[in-house]
């Protein structure tokens, strides 16, 4: 994950809180949050080499297939459930999101924005599935099977009655960074969301679902 993503994400994690990281990779994020926020963190990962890397870092890694759900965890057993750059690799992102909000009081989700102009241009002009530095796989060997755009994601949040507390976006260059403020779905390379369950007592129709302005 990018350093700038980490800096944004850090603001949404409370010190000494319990954090579950889905698809924790080599444990970099949990290690950083433990150092900066003294969190009690656990990471779920399925890749053997990444699990070993986590062990080497001293990160609490639990071998788990996230696609099978989070049935091992009680409701609200974590303060924050984080998932960076894994949403697009899930079998059913909608179900996992719902599970994350069951297990965590709040969630942080980051994903590559497929509505990005580079992706659009790649497909629109070259007529081929986008292959970028960030997403360097070919269409047939990619683990990323459920790409979405910022707009797609917010529609899903509305449908699942998920409350968007905050949104941040990251661009790949200074020009995009300027334009991203106006057209996030066109210029953001990565989207970072801070989510929670709807406030109790509100039905889905009147819950607060409009995204906040981009910081």
């Amino acid at each position: 994950m990018l350093r700038v993503e980490l800096e944004i994400l850090k603001d949404w994690i409370r010190p000494a809180s319990r954090v579950l990281d889905l698809g924790c990779g080599d444990g970099t994020l949990l290690e950083a949050l433990t150092a900066s926020h003294n969190i009690e963190g656990y990471g779920l990962e399925i890749d053997p080499d990444r699990i070993t890397a986590c062990v080497q870092r001293g990160v609490n890694v639990i071998e788990t297939d996230i696609n099978l759900g989070l049935g091992h965890f009680q409701d609200d057993s974590f303060d924050t459930v984080v998932m960076t750059n894994s949403l697009q690799a899930l079998l059913r992102p909608d179900r996992t999101l719902a599970e994350m909000l069951r297990v965590g009081k709040e969630c942080v989700v980051t994903f590559p924005n497929f509505g990005n102009i580079q992706a659009r241009a790649y497909l629109g002009l070259r007529g081929r599935m986008p292959v970028t530095k960030q997403l360097s796989y070919q269409w047939y060997d990619t683990p990323n099977i459920h790409f979405c755009t910022i707009r797609d994601f917010e529609v899903l949040c509305r449908d699942l009655n998920i409350r968007i507390l905050d949104r941040a976006t990251v661009a790949s260059n200074p020009v995009s960074e300027q334009l991203m403020g106006i057209w996030p779905n066109l210029f953001a390379q990565t989207a970072i969301y801070h989510l929670s369950k709807p406030p109790t007592g509100l039905s889905s129709s009147d819950s607060q679902n409009s995204p906040p302005t981009t910081p």
């Binding site: 319990r18 890694v61 639990i62 071998e63």
Partner: peptide
């Protein structure tokens, strides 16, 4: 809330 690593 105990530290644990698990591998299957």
């Amino acid at each position: 809330n105990r530290d644990v690593v698990y591998a299957n």
